[in-house]
Amino acid sequence: MSGVAVSKDHEDSPRAQEDLVVLSGVNKHFGALHVLQDIDLTIGRGEVVVVIGPSGSGKSTLCRTINRLETIDAGSISIDGKPLPAEGRELARLRSDVGMVFQSFNLFAHKTVLENVMLGQIKVRGTEKKAAEAKARTLLERVGVAAQAEKYPAQLSGGQQQRVAIARALAMGPKVMLFDEPTSALDPEMINEVLEVMQQLAREGMTMVVVTHEMGFARSAADRVVFMADGRIVEQASPEEFFSNPRSDRAKDFLSKILHH
């Protein structure tokens, strides 16, 4: 019995700890501003990492370097064992494996909701139209906007648009999903509908990097909280540990500000 348990452990543990996204020694400047300073961050497959920190600390930039929407000056980033390629076809392929959800939704305004979710599948993955549509409808169902499939983005509420944006990213079958403040542009009553979709994704085992100010989400869905300030990762810990016992003064200060609001 114990032998079985041990061998099962052996099978499981490498998978659970398998590194999917690895940043090491990443540095980036915007002119004189050193936005990312010696960032070392490893995200395991299936792990949900929430990134928090004060405004301007480099959270968005960090997120965007992972699919090379921002280039880096030094260090290395690899995804699923492969280093990020330079500009070109290889990079495009890698980007298609990294889903990204933006604060401002960024749906294609001239395409219907359904077409938004089909476009990448057809043009990037080369999926057939029928199959792409079927997948799109399934995903729209999953995020709860199937009824809006034929509408244009401008006809949807912010919460609905953001859920479509999540479906659009999921349609590529990404290995990891990046969320950059996905609920910050939403009216309060719409925040939960988006967070629920994200919770569900997390439960299903999606690897996620989430920049957010939603501490409730961090508490309930995150495996790890990464706290950034001034371009550095100041500390990282499990949510329970981080919220109950932050070690750095920066983190204590930050938490006291956002939690006593």
């Binding site: 699919n67 929407l69 980007r95 749906l107 476009l119 990448g120 990037v124 659009r168 590529m172």
Partner: peptide, 13 residues
Amino acid sequence: PAGQAEAARALGM
């Protein structure tokens, strides 16, 4: 909006 081009790039276009 520039964000749409960015979203398209992020899809791998």
